[in-house]
Design a protein around this nucleic acid. Structure first.
Length: 254
DNA sequence: ATGCCTCAGCTCCTGAGA
């Protein structure tokens, strides 16, 4: 089983690239973030023609998430039960016995802002819900755009980014708290190239200079850890015309 | 640099992203 996550920064713009990528990478599950479209605009027919069933949860202009799956997802839940939110950030479903949560974590803008406070509350709400989901579904994958780095290895300029957004101790505390529920950063279960990132700024030739951050993650539960055989970042789509600023992360389970 | 790109939309500028 292969699962992947990709923040595509507007599905309207990136649909051809997603279809091309799926044709070259026929994963079983693809979680998308930042659809930036209302639900009536979602191209379910195009994905169906490519062999994928879709579940989606969008809104106008911002956010929006989807799960594309080879076999239809069941027990689908949108957003975090018990956490009141007017943004479309989470979609969950069960696929071939695995509980899959696709999430677009809040950006947070900057420490000290209202958006940062919202990010902290959202992270708390997510953790409480994931804890409950883990009890019901031991085989669980939590993947998406986390907008948080684990540590300096995930940052091109750790000193310059110290206590900046995506790199603060407050954010990393919540990431570690998710791990403490019994989850693992699947990417670090394997040897990886130095300076591996999943996002690069559009500005200032960020990708060409490899000035990026690893903020897209696939966390897996204890029950799945021994089944994981590889986790990779696919930088190929970043060389497309009009690329997303994020690239896919891919997990292989046996 | 409160910039640099890119995207959506109450679209020719602004807000937001990261």
């Amino acid at each position: 089983m292969k699962l992947a996550t990709w923040n595509i920064n507007s599905l309207s713009v990136r649909l051809p690239q997603v279809l091309d990528w799926l044709a070259a990478n026929p994963v079983d599950v693809l979680a998308l973030q930042e659809l930036k479209m209302t639900d009536d605009k979602f191209p379910a027919d195009a994905f169906q023609a490519a062999g994928y069933s879709s579940q989606w949860f969008g809104q106008k202009t911002y956010n929006g998430v989807a799960l594309l799956t080879r076999t239809p997802a069941t027990e689908v839940v949108k957003n975090i039960p018990g956490f009141d939110d007017d943004m479309a950030r989470v979609i969950t479903g069960t696929v071939e016995g695995v509980r899959v949560i696709g999430a677009y974590f809040p950006n947070g803008q900057a420490p000290g802002t209202d958006k940062f406070e919202y990010k902290m509350e959202w992270l708390k709400g997510l953790r409480h819900w994931v804890k409950a989901e883990l009890e019901r579904h031991p085989q669980l994958v939590l993947m998406g755009d986390y907008n948080i780095t684990f540590d300096d290895l995930d940052v091109w300029d750790p000193e310059g980014m110290r206590e900046q957004i995506h790199c603060t101790e407050d954010e990393r505390y919540h990431l570690r708290a998710l791990i403490a529920l019994g989850l693992h950063d699947s990417y670090r279960l394997f040897d990886q190239p130095a300076k591996s990132y999943s996002w690069w700024d559009y500005r200032d030739f960020g990708f060409r200079r490899n000035r990026g951050m690893r903020i897209d993650h696939i966390l897996i539960s204890n029950a799945l850890k021994d089944k994981a055989t590889a986790c990779t970042i696919d930088k190929t789509p970043r060389s497309n015309e009009r690329p997303s600023d994020h690239t896919p992360v891919v997990l292989t389970l046996n």
